[in-house]
Amino acid sequence: MVAIQVSWNIIHQEVNTEPYNPFEEQQGEISRIEKEHQVLQDQLQEAYENYEQIRLKGLEETRDLEEKLKRHLEENKISKTELDWFLQDLEREIKKWQQEKKEIQERLKSLKKKIKKVSNASEMYTQKNDGKEKELELHLDQSLEISNTLTNEKMKIEECIKKGKDDYEESHQRAVAAEVSVLENWKESEVYKLQIMESQAEAYLKKLELISCDTAAYPDMESDICSWELFLSNVTKEIEKAKSQFEEQIKAIKNGSRLSELSKVQISELSFPACNTSFAWAVPSLEHCPRSASCLPLKPRQGLPSFGLPLCPFSHVH
C-alpha cells in the first residue's frame, strides 16, 4: 500500500495510485524523474554561470596578456635599438682604443730612445761631477764663513733698527707733547682775551644796574642792559666753543693727527655794544676799552716754549 499526499478538499475522494504505463514502471517514477530533471537544470544553470565567470575572467586575462605581450614587444624593440647603439658605440670605442694603443706604442718607443739618451748623458755628467765634488766642498766651506759673517752683520743692523725705532718713538712723543703744548698755549690766549671781554661786560652791567633807578635821566637803560646781557651771553658761549674746539684738536693730536693737518680754530670776532657817551663817567672801565677781542693785549702762558710758532694763528670770523 502506498500513501499519497492530497489536498484537504479531496481527502474523501478516491485517488488512482496505480503506475501510469508506459511512463513509469513503479509508482512515483515520474515525480522522481521530474525532481532529477530539476536538479540537472539547477546544475546546468550553475555550470553555465560558472562558465560565464570563467569566460569573462579568461577574457580579462587574455587582454592583460595581450597588453603585456605588446609592452614586451615594444620593450624588445627598444632594447634591440639600444643594443644596436651600444654595438655601434662599442665599435667606435674599440677603434679609438686601437688608435690610442698605437699612439702609446709609438710614444713608448720614443720614450725608450729618450731614456737611453738621458742615461748616456747622466753617465757623462756623473763622470764630470766626480771632479767637481771637491770644488763644491770648498764652496760650501766658504759659504759657511760668509753666512756667519752675514749673521753677525744682520744682528748689528737689527740692533741699529731697534735703536732707531726707540729714538723715533721718543721723538714722536716729544713732538706730540710740543704740539699739544702749542695748542694749549693758543687755547689759553684766545680764552684769556674772551674772558677779559666777559669781565669788562660784567663790570659794565653792574654799573648799569646801579644807576638803573634813574630811568628819566637814562631812557635807554633797559635796551642797553638787554644788549649787554646778550653780548655777555655770546661771549660766554664763544668761550665754551673755543675751549671745545681746542680740546678736540688736542685729542686729535694725541690720537695721531698732526697739527699742520688740522683746520684752524674759528673764533668769532665780538664787538662791544654801543655805549651812551652821556654816562661814560658811570663806567670808567670802558672809557678806553677796545671794541673787539682781537684788540685785547695778549697774556702769554708762563713757562711754555714757543717752538718757533706764532702765538695764535687762528683767524676771527664775523
Rank of each mutant, 00 (worst) to 15 (best):
D167W: 08
L286P: 00
K206H: 09
I211K: 04
E248A: 12
L296A: 13
G256T: 01
F246Q: 00
I267A: 04
E188L: 12
Q5E: 09
N255E: 09
F314A: 04
Q105W: 06
A47R: 11
Q249D: 01
S263A: 14
I253V: 02
A217E: 07
Q5S: 14
W85P: 15
L183V: 03
T81Y: 01
P290Y: 04
E248G: 02
H288E: 10
L56N: 10
E52F: 10
Q43N: 12
P219S: 07
V118W: 11
K95H: 12
N129W: 03
K187Y: 02
K116H: 08
T151I: 13
P305V: 13
L259P: 06
A47S: 13
E100Y: 04
L205Q: 04
E14G: 12
P290I: 08
F314C: 05
S181M: 03
E75G: 08
C312R: 00
A280E: 05
Q302D: 07
W186Y: 04
K101N: 15
D214A: 06
L304F: 06
M221N: 05
R71L: 02
E74L: 02
L90G: 11
K96D: 06
P305D: 07
V283E: 05
L205P: 00
A282N: 01
H37S: 15
K165D: 07
E66K: 06
K35W: 14
V317C: 10
I4N: 02
E170F: 07
A178N: 04
I94G: 05
P219L: 04
E209P: 01
Q26T: 07
E240W: 13
R55Y: 08
R32V: 11
A242L: 10
T277D: 12
P305Y: 02
S233K: 15
C312G: 09
H172L: 08
A203I: 11
E14P: 00
Y48E: 09
S271L: 03
P300A: 13
A216S: 05
E261S: 11
K117Q: 08
E135F: 04
K187I: 13
Y51V: 08
E34S: 13
N234H: 10
M155R: 15
I78C: 09
C289Y: 05
